[in-house]
């Protein structure tokens, strides 16, 4: 066996041991060493040079990056997640014909979809979605994320929150918790516009707080413009749709002048 490959696989075994012990600091150290070692393999993307051990090298590299992604979830580091995922992606897309599919693939793709949802990067979410085949879309991990996005867009927030219980894998819980925070802000934004007032207890339920005090703190920090009086929260509505009394003269003058200029060019 190739000495480099042996070195990498030994290092990787140590990494996996540390990972099982939940010793994440050691894991991160080992991972950076592993990544340096991987740069010496020429069979990996983007070079894809053919070498006798290409299949083995690709498999172990993919395995390492898959672990790296899961590790970043455990250490709750979203930037690292993004980096590692992008390094992993070529193995799923470009190396598809060179390798047998990975068992982890759908899990990781689902995680990534969830991350994009949490970060409210919906455009990228849909771009990723286009890459998946219809068979992949039926996979429970992917389906979970896709349904979340739909409920989120519709505004059925309860469904999003109850989806936490049906998360297909333990790693999903981290993102689901983050999603709950995003949803609280969304609900707050919607309530502000939709209600004139709600009682404190209803508001507490709607915004998913366990005590009135937490709610009051939240109102003070995030929405100081809300008023709490007589046992209810009163939303100050900006009356933006009031009929305009003033004529927007400057704007009108500008528009009319530009029409005149364009007409002159035509005539």
């Amino acid at each position: 066996m190739d000495p480099q490959l042996t070195e990498v696989s030994q290092q990787f075994e140590r990494f996996k041991a540390a990972f099982a012990r939940k010793d994440y600091d050691t894991c991160s150290d080992l991972l950076s060493q592993l990544k340096v070692l991987l740069t010496k393999f020429t069979s990996l993307p983007p070079l894809f040079e053919s070498s006798p051990n290409a299949a083995q090298e690709l498999t172990i590299a993919r395995d390492i990056y898959e672990h790296a992604v899961v590790l970043s979830v455990k250490t709750e580091d979203q930037d690292a997640f993004e980096r590692d995922f992008f390094q992993l992606k070529p193995y799923y897309v470009d190396a598809r014909n060179r390798l047998p599919p990975s068992a982890q693939e759908n899990l990781i793709l689902g995680l990534n979809l969830l991350r994009l949802l949490v970060q409210n990067r919906i455009a990228e979410f849909h771009t990723e979605l286009e890459l998946l085949s219809s068979a992949t879309l039926d996979n429970p991990c992917i389906k979970h994320a896709v349904e979340l996005e739909q409920s989120f867009m519709e505004g059925a927030y309860n469904r999003v929150l109850s989806a936490r219980q049906t998360a297909p894998d333990a790693t999903y819980v981290y993102f689901m918790d983050l999603l709950a925070k995003t949803i609280r802000d969304e609900i707050a934004g919607c309530s502000e516009k939709a209600y004139d007032y709600v009682s404190i207890s209803d508001a507490r339920q709607m915004l998913l707080f366990s005590s009135d005090q937490e709610l009051l703190n939240y109102v003070n920090e995030e929405h100081p413009e809300w008023e709490v009086k007589d046992g209810s929260v009163v939303f100050q509505k900006a009356k933006e749709t009031a009929p305009c009394k003033e004529i927007p003269s400057l704007q009108l003058i500008n528009q009319t002048l530009s029409y005149a200029r364009e007409l002159e060019r035509i005539v």
Binding site: E154, G155, A156, I187, G189, C190, A194, D196
Partner: peptide, 27 residues
């Protein structure tokens, strides 16, 4: 829809996005 709670939050979101002009009387 399956539940009233779903309906309420969906209506709330539609109001915020300006799709409909309405208010919700929660009580």
């Amino acid at each position: 829809l399956d539940s009233v709670a779903d309906a309420e939050s969906i209506v709330a979101k539609a109001i915020r996005d300006g799709a409909i002009e309405a208010t919700i009387d929660h009580k």
